[in-house]
Amino acid sequence: MSTVAFHVPGTPAPQGSKIRTRYGMREASQRVKPWRDVVTQRAAVSAGEEHILGPLEPPYTVELWFYILKPRTTRATHPVAPTIGDLDKLTRAVGDALTKSGLIVDDRFIVRLVAEKQWAGSDGPGVLIRVTEVTS
């Protein structure tokens, strides 16, 4: 059973909401593509550091801890503002990035997902990711 864990610094961006344009559909958030690219790159680097040749063997457990930068003027105890993004949309961006990086075969093989979001501490915003192969 292999496990790969790594931290991706940066501002997490939600994926999922679409905007119709005259050229077709595009992501509503312009931040999602750069965020997915950073996660993809960090996942590939982490796989190399762990000497993993090719994707992990499916199925997978994925654990995600999102750290969101706290605004100066909020009294909220948790990151729930509309501008932050839904937890399911934040996880969607990470799942696609893990697939694109080659760390996992496809995000449809994620059989257990644990995710939470909280205010960032001194380490700043980002996401801590742990992917584990599930054994029978």
Rank of each mutant, 00 (worst) to 15 (best):
T99G: 13
S122F: 12
R92F: 02
H78C: 01
Q41S: 03
R92A: 12
A97M: 10
V94P: 05
Q118K: 13
I129N: 08
E50A: 14
I110Y: 08
A93H: 00
K100D: 15
P9F: 03
L128A: 14
V134T: 12
A28T: 07
P79S: 04
S136E: 14
G121C: 03
T77S: 07
R108W: 01
A43F: 05
T83Y: 13
T11S: 15
Y67D: 13
E27Q: 14
T135A: 10
S101W: 01
A28P: 02
A120L: 10
R42D: 07
E57S: 10
L103E: 04
R20E: 14
L69F: 00
A28D: 08
K117P: 05
Y67K: 13
A13C: 10
T40S: 08
K33I: 12
I110R: 05
L69D: 10
D106S: 14
D37P: 00
T91I: 01
L56Q: 07
A28H: 11
M1A: 14
I52F: 06
Q118M: 12
V39K: 02
F6Y: 11
W35F: 12
P55H: 10
G10W: 03
V131I: 15
P14C: 06
M1P: 09
F66W: 02
L53W: 01
E50I: 00
V105S: 10
R31A: 13
